[in-house]
């Protein structure tokens, strides 16, 4: 499988503290990569470094063999990154449709076409009936879907999902898992940071485990969950 995303030797430092140390990963289209680790392991920092929201100390990132290491976040989005935020950030003053419209405007300039694209994404995530509500009025599960819709409306090649399962009730969780699988079935490369092991085990083709900023294990979900270092990291430090 050809690599869509490749990251080599990613290191992030805050002041004197190394938050992520020399982590590499690669991801092909249609593949789901799970990123797990105890709290404070550097998952979100790595995530932000990959998407351009945190400055990197060293390392190299390529998207479809193009070096994007030096590009700011918005340029990475233009080249094919989509991301959600851990704390959902809808534009609260705007309607659900307008929220997605902003992202849809990345690839189309005409409003009617952008609205069309936004509506089709909203249908995909099951929010079409709420298109004209203010985003402020959505509940948690729907806000998550709105986040997803915003990330999908930029027509990404790689989608970064930052704990989109957290706090969902069981039926909503099932729906979300099914939905993420459908994304990979469409050929999207998915990188997810997640605490919900059920989702990681069920969805991931490949899992990377971080602890204290280091990659301590990687492999299939079965391989990493039986890895002693992983068990130790989870039980020992947290």
């Amino acid at each position: 499988m050809p690599n869509v995303l490749r990251a080599d030797g990613i290191t992030v430092k805050f002041g004197g503290v190394t938050a992520v140390n020399n982590v590499s990963l690669s991801l092909g289209s249609g593949e789901i990569l799970g990123l797990i680790g105890p709290n404070g392991a550097g998952k979100t920092t790595l995530f932000n470094a990959l998407t351009g929201f945190a400055p990197m100390h060293s390392g190299r990132i390529t998207l479809l063999d193009r070096d994007i290491t030096a590009l700011p976040a918005f340029k990475r989005t233009r080249l094919g990154f989509g991301r959600t935020f851990q704390t959902e950030r809808p534009f609260e003053e705007l309607t659900v449709l307008e929220n997605v419209l902003i992202a849809a405007f990345l690839t189309v300039v005409r409003r009617s076409e952008a609205e069309h694209l936004a509506m089709s994404v909203l249908e995909q995530v099951g929010l079409a009936d709420r298109a004209h509500q203010p985003a402020l009025d959505l509940n948690l599960a729907r806000r998550r879907r709105l986040e997803l819709a915003k990330a999908l409306a930029v027509k990404p090649k790689v989608i970064f999902l930052d704990e989109i399962m957290a706090g969902l009730n069981p039926p909503a969780l099932r729906e979300m898992i099914t939905f993420v699988r459908s994304l990979s079935a469409q050929g999207l490369a998915v990188l997810m940071v997640e605490h919900i092991m059920e989702a990681i085990i069920e969805l991931s083709d490949h899992v990377i485990v971080l602890a204290s900023g280091e990659k301590i294990a990687e492999g299939t979900p079965q391989q990493v969950t039986s890895n002693e270092r992983v068990i130790e990291a989870y039980l020992g430090t947290d």
Partner: peptide, 21 residues
């Protein structure tokens, strides 16, 4: 489009960047 970009930046710059703005 420009009007929505303006509002997106006003509301949340990070979120706007995630939309390619």
């Amino acid at each position: 489009r420009f009007g929505y970009q303006l509002r997106a930046v006003r509301e949340d710059e990070d979120s706007a960047m995630a939309a390619g703005i």
